[in-house]
Amino acid sequence: MLEKLAGQFEAASATYAEKYDIARDPDWFLLKLQEEIGELTQTWNRKTGRGRRKDRSEEDIRRDLADETADLFGHVLLFARANGIDLASAIERKWLFRPAQG
């Protein structure tokens, strides 16, 4: 399941990168993770009253939180794929369960 998801994120990311002429070199994958963590943190700060709401409703903020979490998840999968990391094996080793197979 994770490998299939990673492939789907890869296809979407490659299309986006081509459209906007973005070079996805090895550093890019880690830098994007950092960027997405920042965006998730910024949204969390809005949700918890630690940041400006920027005229965002509670519903907007919850949707933003979900969207930023999805971005982070996608970039974790892209980082793992780009670096030859077998996430399923790592999850089994670190979290002591085997991820469901697609």
Score class of each variant (00 low, 15 high):
residue 29 F to E: 01
residue 32 K to H: 04
residue 66 A to F: 07
residue 70 A to W: 03
residue 82 A to H: 08
residue 94 K to C: 14
residue 53 R to L: 11
residue 26 P to A: 11
residue 76 V to E: 00
residue 32 K to F: 00
residue 91 I to F: 09
residue 46 R to F: 04
residue 41 T to Y: 05
residue 71 D to W: 01
residue 12 A to L: 06
residue 101 Q to T: 15
residue 24 R to C: 13
residue 5 L to A: 09
residue 87 L to Y: 03
residue 77 L to H: 00
residue 21 D to S: 14
residue 17 A to G: 07
residue 72 L to S: 00
residue 12 A to V: 01
residue 5 L to S: 04
residue 9 F to H: 02
residue 69 T to C: 04
residue 74 G to T: 00
residue 4 K to C: 08
residue 12 A to H: 05
residue 17 A to S: 13
residue 16 Y to V: 03
residue 77 L to G: 00
residue 41 T to K: 10
residue 88 A to N: 13
residue 53 R to M: 10
residue 61 I to Y: 02
residue 64 D to C: 06
residue 82 A to V: 07
residue 76 V to F: 01
residue 65 L to I: 06
residue 17 A to Q: 13
residue 36 E to W: 01
residue 34 Q to H: 12
residue 101 Q to K: 12
residue 77 L to N: 01
residue 59 E to S: 09
residue 70 A to M: 08
residue 55 D to V: 08
residue 100 A to K: 12
residue 95 W to Y: 14
residue 70 A to C: 08
residue 7 G to A: 02
residue 56 R to P: 05
residue 59 E to A: 10
residue 84 G to F: 05
residue 8 Q to H: 07
residue 54 K to R: 15
residue 27 D to S: 10
residue 4 K to P: 01
residue 84 G to T: 05
residue 40 L to W: 01
residue 55 D to R: 15
residue 43 T to W: 03
residue 11 A to I: 05
residue 30 L to F: 14
residue 10 E to M: 02
residue 65 L to E: 04
residue 61 I to C: 04
residue 50 R to E: 10
residue 5 L to E: 06
residue 77 L to W: 00
residue 73 F to S: 06
residue 53 R to S: 14
residue 25 D to I: 12
residue 89 S to H: 10
residue 34 Q to K: 12
residue 24 R to M: 15
residue 19 K to E: 06
residue 22 I to W: 04
residue 25 D to N: 15
residue 52 R to F: 14
residue 53 R to D: 12
residue 46 R to D: 06
residue 76 V to C: 08
residue 8 Q to P: 01
residue 37 I to W: 00
residue 11 A to P: 03
residue 74 G to W: 00
residue 77 L to F: 04
residue 31 L to W: 07
residue 51 G to C: 09
residue 70 A to D: 06
residue 11 A to Q: 09
residue 35 E to T: 05
residue 68 E to P: 03
residue 67 D to A: 14
residue 10 E to Q: 12
residue 40 L to M: 07
residue 39 E to M: 02
residue 47 K to M: 09
residue 48 T to N: 15
residue 4 K to L: 12
residue 22 I to V: 15
residue 81 R to A: 12
residue 21 D to I: 10
residue 10 E to N: 03
residue 22 I to N: 09
residue 75 H to M: 10
residue 2 L to H: 08
residue 58 E to I: 05
residue 26 P to Q: 11
residue 83 N to T: 03
residue 41 T to R: 13
residue 85 I to S: 01
residue 76 V to R: 00
residue 21 D to A: 12
residue 55 D to E: 13
residue 93 R to L: 13
residue 44 W to I: 09
residue 86 D to Q: 08
residue 102 G to P: 13
residue 79 F to L: 00
residue 22 I to H: 03
residue 56 R to D: 13
residue 2 L to N: 08
residue 54 K to I: 09
residue 8 Q to I: 03
residue 23 A to H: 13
residue 3 E to R: 10
residue 59 E to D: 09
residue 92 E to Q: 14
residue 27 D to C: 10
residue 38 G to A: 07
residue 28 W to L: 11
residue 44 W to Q: 09
residue 45 N to F: 09
residue 59 E to C: 04
residue 32 K to G: 00
residue 88 A to S: 14
residue 55 D to S: 11
residue 37 I to D: 00
